[in-house]
Amino acid sequence: MKPFEYARATGPAEAVRDYTPGTMYLGGGTNLVDLMKLGVAEPDRLLDVSRLPLDGIEEARDRVRVGATVRNTDLAAHPLIRARYPMLARAVLTGASGQVRNVATVAGNLLQRTRCTYFQDVTRPCNKRRPGSGCPAIAGDHANLAILGASDACVATHPSDLAVALAALDAEVHVTGPGGDRIVPMPGLHRLPGHEPERDTVLAPGDLITGVELPPPPPGASLYRKVRERASFAFALVSIAAVLDVAADGTVADCRIALGGVAHVPWRAERAERALIGGPATGEAFLQAAEAELEQAAPLPRNAYKVPLARNLIVATLEELAP
């Protein structure tokens, strides 16, 4: 582990001003500290932003603003979240363990790195960790990796459950940085790997997430479901955040579907949504929509199971949500 400096930020603006190349912001540290121990992350300096006064969950008209340093446990337990966004609370509670959720922050959760085995092992190549070194996962161990939006350079998945729920809810990520304040709409925070798999997000150096704003909950019923071979404390093989609103005439008035465990980003299933809206809310329609989405899938030999898994999950979840 490389020696590093540690400093505590006094405010968001001060943190950004204090940022220098080689600095990394530290939230709960549940991923970053592990990566430092592994030699994957080698910051010169940690700027601890976990105690910034960004730990509130507040109502602002019909929206809810969640601070960046709110702990995952507190987010899932908050009455506003439980009442208005139960799917979000459920997504958070499927993540990690109670101990990890007690420490992990909202911003840190969104910015956690892939758990691809090659990324986490500095003795093996990885384009995300060492650009240009190669991606052994494509010919090797990719059973848990991406089937959608991957590139020849990287087939990693983003591991967050929270991000999947936020993508389905059209949440906005509030960012401050050297270029000023801005809002990044989900799922736009994360990016596909392309030829630059080392870049997980659209954030620029020095950018700091200050919070997440949730628009009014979409009408309809919602659900988060996570598939894993172990009953708890495991990343998703595939997960889904779905919202379905069916009109009185039986047609789909609104629909949101986001998938986890399938891509470098929380994958908003826009093709499936487009196929469904205005059409009948039937099992047949759900299946056609799922298949329309998964036509784009480019699975590898050992993760091909994720295609039928995602299809089944979309259909079963929508059937459960349909009145």
Binding site: P136, A139, G140, D141, R230, S232
Partner: peptide, 30 residues
């Protein structure tokens, strides 16, 4: 029966999944 497995790295040799986040053993919920 359901989860334990250490993949062998055919390309580079040695094992993959060398930690308890990747090598799953049953938890209480199982």
């Amino acid at each position: 029966a359901l989860m334990e497995e250490t993949p062998i790295d055919e390309e580079f040799g040695g094992f993959l999944h060398r930690d308890l986040a990747q090598y799953h053993v049953p938890v209480c919920a199982d």
